[in-house]
Amino acid sequence: MNQHSTNTDPPLLVRDMTVAYDKRPVLWDIDYASPPITRGHGSLTAIVGPNGAGKSTFIKACLGLLPVATGNVRFFGQPLAKARALVGYVPQRESVDWDFPVSVLDVVAMGRYRTLGWLSPVTRAAKAQALDALAHVGIDNLAHRQIGQLSGGQQQRVFIARALAQQARLYFMDEPFAGVDAATEQAIIAVLRSLRDQGVTVLVVHHDLQTVPTYFDHALLLNTRLIATGTIADAFTPTNLQRTYGGRLTLLEQASTALAQNIGPAGVRGQA
């Protein structure tokens, strides 16, 4: 456990964040505080919004991968430069070349690089931790495969394992459920839940509105501006979804079904 988790600072605090590409704002004046860690439990937050709403941009701006026009970000009360060890990242699977000449273990061991010196080779301890992370996502038997030989679901597990190897207290995950098989989806959600139960905060860009209420306990609705944030019951409401997705009826229907299953049909009648 980290000493910071006893402190009252939220795991992630974003103030006045504006990000613009070529003068057009992609994120506009975002103020967000992630749920506090309560009784040793973290949180699982779904970041939802239509395509182009700035979900990935939000993650990348928090991680300092994109320049922000204004605003600042604090992790457990610290700026990113001092909190790197506490922050983990799962990029989109398509962001890398899966024919690259590395083994699964090589990739997962990258999660330990931050703790290794520049000139140090990958140590035996780092490899053992990587193997341990692979076992958590159930593919330690594939450790020595070249990454190109894996299925899409297995590749996604490799990225999750690399993040686990980071041993962070806060994770950003960019569409970890995109294009994976059902078994992988269950394996990933099990990993996320066990992280939360260990007091870890996880923010996940998620596309399938149907599964938001079952997989997550909090939601962050985004469409250039922050539309709503809070627990599923407070934030993932039909009104907020309509404000996020506008008039896209098919998506609203999806959400209504999901809500009907979780909250009951009375809550959605007025909207659909």
Binding site: L63, P91, V107, M110, Y113
Partner: peptide
């Protein structure tokens, strides 16, 4: 292999 992950871990 993955420059943006590298940047995210502070390299």
């Amino acid at each position: 292999f993955d420059p943006s992950f590298g940047r995210a871990i502070g390299r």
